[in-house]
Design a protein around this nucleic acid. Structure first.
Lengths: 346, 346
DNA sequence: GTGAAAGCGCTAACAC
DNA sequence: GTGTTAGCGCTTTCAC
């Protein structure tokens, strides 16, 4: 990388002008004569001059780079988020440095420090599952680096956030199930200490109440790990009840999948015998089975929105008070099985 | 970011010593007295000093950053690759700048230029689908930036590459199908101008030949876009033949999915009536249906391997000839349906 | 054992 | 219209 570097100095020397003139010519400064500009641009082109952004960054105290900490790259939802971030960042002329916390608190701390040391202009952060201490975050904020949280946030009054409206999404889904004729709707709940589990459960509950149906505790299972296996096991349990549900609302897609397996193994038909709706993203639903209606999480939009907010904050810096926003994105109910109703009416 | 920056100068001033001494103390230089070191480290700790990597990068003409160009982030295979890259880079102390070409040639060119301008130490590149001209790549290589190709490569004698052994993976899969009793194996081929399609087709063909079966052209369909819909349509066509196949080897997972749908819609059973094996990655197979045996593509390993090779090249730079390697990763046949054989035996 | 000085590549205030 | 100078934060020779 050393050898073949062309710098403005080289251009200046060759043209018998000073580096600053070259610099100005390159950025079309009004002071510079047309001939000089032409000569400089021609030579720059010829030598294939590429500006050294590192030097620029140091000079301007700005890197045009945003750091993204993601709990797990290999996850459909998160990968859509990254994609949204990347697209917005690209358009705005920002680089994206990606760091994967792998759901580890320690790694999150290290990553944030590394990103700060690289002097990113701002960070997008989704907390690792382990994170319960927030000093590292406060520390970064106190250094004046804007942070925008996405999906998994920390209640900081000084940061913007983008989250999904889990409550509304769950409620909409369950209302839909009821309106399609489901009478006994069970719920596969995930870890009850996570906000998202609680919000989704509340949405489920409120949908039932709104339609004057009562919540049957027996039909609500708490699945800590939220995995395929747990969904399957829990569903089997539900199905073996004396008065089993005729529909299941699953907290996430692995569990919805597990439920499907359990149901199929029992020889029951979806959705005629049992309907399933899962909180998910389009991917699983698309792939799994057309019998799965699902609640789509807007990952791509979340990434875009978070990146937009962050860049706005970065570019507002020094120009007035920072704007703290909280954006709650709506989920979208994707109805894939038109026969759900028919199945329920018979 | 300006205001709260603590620099070695600040530490020096406060301690009444020069910046250079601080610098040395911080990196435990043998010349520096123990007391000075102690004082410096204590103050650095207290002020929460974080070295400015940007300055370091400029000074050392090295950024400890690798640039990754990925055709499409929201793609299971590629996201596993990114994850592998990230993990290796992290361990080696490198940052990862991510750029998404979105399968666009123009964007690939722009991205590579931007990465070069950011003075990444090396790049990992998987070509966009559109890319047929390679000048931009040669240009970067000529500037002395090492490039390692992953998955989709350009035949450059000066770059390392990591690819998947599509041929062997396909052959293994089809041999397995034959050995499980399939007699008439069809193939959903993807765009016949892509290397991967051809290699997989060859694997399919050679497996048949090796078992002294003949290749029936009627059973091989060329699906240009390789989508779900195309797989479905092609399978329908195959099934309506007077002598339809009793098994299908699909070039990729969306098509395998499409095939499954078509088969199910016909009221046929998988794998009893028709077996399916798809070239894929574990994800789709895991999610879709336990009846799908699939050829797993080692994306994570590919990412790891590519990052390792690149970092090795970066760190070897100037110390002897660069080592050009080509690594061909084996796929793994994931057999999920033990009843495939039984189904065929009856 | 420590300091002074130079320089990585670039820009911008200040000359003239 | 162009050159000179200083400096972003850091490391590293060369003095002493």
């Amino acid at each position: 990388m050393k050898s073949n570097q062309v710098t403005i100095k080289d251009i200046g020397r060759e043209l018998g002008i000073s580096p600053s003139t070259v610099s100005r010519a390159l950025k079309d400064h009004p002071d510079i004569s047309t001939e000089t500009k032409k000569a400089v641009n021609a030579l720059a082109e010829k030598l294939n001059y590429q500006p050294n952004i590192v030097a620029l960054n140091l000079r301007q105290q700005k890197t045009n780079t945003i750091g993204v900490i993601i709990p797990e790259i290999v996850h459909f939802f998160f990968s859509t988020v990254i994609s949204g971030i990347e697209d917005v960042a690209y358009q705005a002329g920002y680089n994206v440095i990606l760091a994967q916390s792998n759901e580890s608190y320690q790694r999150e701390v290290t990553d944030m420090k590394a990103l700060f040391n690289s002097r990113v202009d701002g960070m997008l952060l989704s907390l690792s599952r382990e994170t319960t201490n927030f000093d590292h975050i406060e520390s970064i904020i106190s250094k004046g680096v804007p942070i925008v949280f996405y999906d998994r946030m920390y209640e900081s009054p000084t940061s913007s956030k983008v989250i999904v409206d889990d409550y509304a999404g769950a409620k909409e889904a369950v209302l839909h199930m009821i309106d399609q004729g489901c009478k006994r709707i069970g719920h596969l709940m995930a870890a009850p200490n996570l906000m998202i589990s609680i919000d989704r459960f509340k949405g489920y509950e409120d949908a039932l109440l709104e339609r004057k149906m009562k919540v049957n505790k027996e039909w609500v299972t708490e699945c800590f790990s939220g995995t395929f296996e747990e969904g399957k096991r829990a569903t089997k349990k539900l199905l073996s009840l004396p008065n089993p549900p005729d529909a299941i609302f699953a907290n996430n897609d692995p569990m919805a999948m597990g439920a499907m397996m359990a149901i199929k193994e029992k020889g029951l038909k979806i959705p005629q015998d049992i309907a399933i709706v899962g909180f998910s993203n389009w991917f699983f639903g698309e792939v799994m089975d057309p019998s799965l209606t699902s609640v789509d999480q807007p990952g791509y939009e979340m990434g875009q929105e978070a990146a937009r907010m962050l860049i706005k904050q970065i570019e507002m810096k020094g120009k007035g008070e920072p704007i703290i926003e909280t954006k709650i994105l709506k989920t979208k109910l994707i109805i894939r099985n038109s026969s759900l109703k028919k199945g329920k009416e018979k």
